[in-house]
C-alpha cells in the first residue's frame, strides 16, 4: 500500500506517494529525480549513495524514505547555490580528485559533513571520514588533498 510522504530535500518540500519499504535512495532517484546519489552496491558498503541528513552523512540505500520525513536532506545537487558549486565541490575539481565521477557525490558529501563539524580535521581524520566512500580510480590521494586544502581555510 502506497503512502504519502513529505520529504525536505535540498530546502524544498517534495510530496511523494511511495511504497513504505522504498529506500531513500530509490525515492530520491526515481520519484523526485535527484540522480546524483548512486547505487554502487545496495548494501551500504561503498558509499556512493551517501546523502546528508541534518548535515550528517547517511547511506540512503539502507534508509527507508519514511524514516527521514521532516528532516533536512541534502543531496549533491543541493550543494550548488545560485549556480555556484560549494567550496568542497570546487576543491575536488581543482585537485583532480575526480576521474569517473561515480563515487564523487558521496565523497564530496562525506567531506562536506566532516569539514562542517571539524574544520581543522587532520589528514588521519580525513582518511577516517572518507574510509566509507570507495573510489576505484584515484587512489584517494587527490581526494584527501582536496579536503586538506579546505582545512582551516575559513
Amino acid at each position: 500500500m502506497k503512502r504519502e510522504l513529505e520529504l525536505n530535500v535540498n530546502d524544498e518540500l517534495w510530496e511523494v506517494n511511495v511504497e513504505p519499504h522504498k529506500t531513500l535512495l530509490e525515492v530520491l532517484r526515481e520519484d523526485i529525480g535527484f540522480t546524483g546519489a548512486k547505487e554502487g552496491c545496495g548494501l551500504g558498503a561503498c558509499g556512493t549513495c551517501t546523502v546528508l541528513v541534518e548535515g550528517a552523512p547517511l547511506l540512503s540505500c539502507l534508509t527507508l524514505a519514511l524514516e527521514v520525513q521532516h528532516k533536512r536532506i541534502t543531496t549533491i545537487e543541493g550543494l550548488v547555490e545560485g549556480g555556484r558549486p560549494d567550496p568542497v565541490q570546487k576543491a575536488f575539481i581543482e585537485h583532480g580528485a575526480i576521474q569517473c565521477g561515480f563515487c564523487t557525490p558521496g565523497n564530496i558529501l562525506s567531506a562536506k559533513a566532516l569539514l562542517d563539524r571539524n574544520p581543522r580535521a587532520s589528514r588521519e581524520e580525513i582518511e577516517e571520514a572518507l574510509a566509507g566512500n570507495l573510489c576505484r580510480c584515484t587512489g584517494y590521494q587527490k581526494i584527501v588533498e582536496a579536503v586538506e586544502s579546505l582545512v582551516g581555510s575559513e
Partner: peptide, 21 residues
Amino acid sequence: KAQPQIDALAKATGQAKYTAD
C-alpha cells in the same frame, strides 16, 4: 599543463548522467 577533466563540474554536482540515470 595540469587541468581538471572537462566534465569535472558535471561530475562534482551530480549532473553527469550514467546509464542508470
